[in-house]
Design a protein around this nucleic acid. Sequence first.
DNA 1: CGCCGAGTTGAACTGAATCAAGAAACGTGG
DNA 2: CCACGTTTCTTGATTCAGTTCAACTCGGCG
Lengths: 194, 194
Amino acid sequence: MNPDYLARLQRYMNGIIGQKPEQWEPFISAFEYAEYPKKSFLIREGEVENYLYFILEGGTSSFFVNEGREKCLDLWFADHFVSSYMSFLTRKPSQIFIQALFPTKTLRIPHQVLQELYARRDESNKVGRLLAEGLYIARTQREIQFLSQTAEERYLDLMRKQPALIQQLPVKTVASYLGIHPESLSRIRKQVMP
Amino acid sequence: MNPDYLARLQRYMNGIIGQKPEQWEPFISAFEYAEYPKKSFLIREGEVENYLYFILEGGTSSFFVNEGREKCLDLWFADHFVSSYMSFLTRKPSQIFIQALFPTKTLRIPHQVLQELYARRDESNKVGRLLAEGLYIARTQREIQFLSQTAEERYLDLMRKQPALIQQLPVKTVASYLGIHPESLSRIRKQVMP
DNA sequence: CGCCGAGTTGAACTGAATCAAGAAACGTGG
DNA sequence: CCACGTTTCTTGATTCAGTTCAACTCGGCG
């Protein structure tokens, strides 16, 4: 494993919990390296999520399948955590798939190891707290956006905030992320372009 | 204040973090009692959320207003925590209102006090972690439901899981919670009833 | 009594889904 | 490196869930 990888995670931890290495050091050393080829799954529906992943390179889509259609919950890229977090927390089968959108390199921590850390070192709960808080905020922002904007507005927003993302991902992935079908995104693009 | 109220919070904490009073005792004693008349606001859009509330009696609606329409994010009742949690965490103005649906009694903890607790007692982060995790799960479940069910399915689901709620709340509140307009709920009820 | 907000009903409208068909891009194996 | 089959993308025609706007009813309350 590239030694720079742990440094990446350290830098991220520094950013969210501050300059107290003793708080995140045991946390960081509990991670293991794992790679996922493009289109492979970090987890499938029905499995119990055993890992929390920190993305080093690449990106993932979290989605569930309803009546044969993929419904994307979120996309995550380098320097973010991803997991079927509900399954990870509840130890129940995952309702979602997480799939690598590109060849993806991660550091991951097993559930068991994290739980032991929480139990053994009170201060490690701070990491877990900040993690859950961050995920909560992301979820809530997205829900507010879905309730207040049309598909076209969400698309324009995405173009403004993450233009690279629209270039790199297939239309069907972007459409699913926007909560619409590929045909609709196709029309929106035609509408918006000229 | 009714002394039973602290016991209520204690029982709840016991349920989520287990039988270690020393973990939640300093937490619980930091709460103060507060009442909200029906239709009053725990917080309004634009204000920074200063409290995390534990509901003793009554209930609340969390909503934002978009183009003059109320969009409900969640409803909470006795023995649950509520807050404009995104504002509480980020210290930025709240995007949402929280309004008492009935005369509502709460125990609330000020942001500052909770932060000091987090900083001074590592183990109190566990409470914060479990709280954020629980809120994350609720948000995610709701998002999955919105992406996979029609309004009628969501209504039938609510009837099955929370029939009392439909009785006690005005149609417009239930409609907003279901993500539709009162007219639409009216039609769905007619459709479903006979 | 009369008002006023809450709920219902109707008719027209709209954003997005659905179904179908064709064109373009992709990747896989020969 | 090309050929072939499979996805992916686009476009069109149609349908549908839910909105919008407007009118009307009902029940409580000053």
